[in-house]
């Protein structure tokens, strides 16, 4: 009889510990993910995303904000998913920012080539006797 009681206590303790650990793990995972999303947003902002993909950046901010709110409510699984969405949105922001910057670089380069061609034409005209 005593052995049966001891066994029951052990099972209850084990379950309580598992529950506690699982709960803590969920919280930690969502916190890590949210932090990752924050870093991703900060990174694209530093790249100048506000100038090239402002709507998408606003969406990433919105997702991150939702993740914060869910985490505050201890809805860690949902918070983790929102943070994932924020990260995915930030990747889109990054790609768009880089793409737009590259377009601008190309445009500047083409303008520079045109300017050089004009200069070349002028120099060649001068060369003609």
């Amino acid at each position: 009889m005593k052995a049966t009681c001891a066994y029951r206590y052990a099972v209850i303790n084990f379950l309580a510990a598992t529950f506690l650990i699982t709960g803590c793990t969920g919280s930690r995972k969502s916190a890590v993910k949210i932090q990752k999303a924050e870093s991703a947003v900060e990174k694209v902002e530093a790249m100048g995303a506000a100038d090239y993909a402002s709507a998408e950046l606003a969406e990433a901010h919105q997702k991150l904000e939702e993740a914060y709110q869910l985490a505050d409510k201890r809805k860690h699984k949902k918070a983790l998913l929102k943070a994932d969405e924020a990260i995915a949105t930030t990747e889109t922001v990054e790609a768009k920012t880089l793409s737009e910057k590259a377009k601008k670089d190309l445009s500047d380069l083409q303008a520079s080539i045109q300017s050089l061609k004009t200069q070349l034409e002028y120099l060649r005209r001068q060369q003609k006797p």
Binding site: T92, K96, L98, S99
Partner: peptide, 12 residues
């Protein structure tokens, strides 16, 4: 988001 990113990466 991945599909949108694919278009931008292709342009990039």
């Amino acid at each position: 988001q991945k599909i949108t990113k694919a278009y931008d990466v292709a342009v990039l």
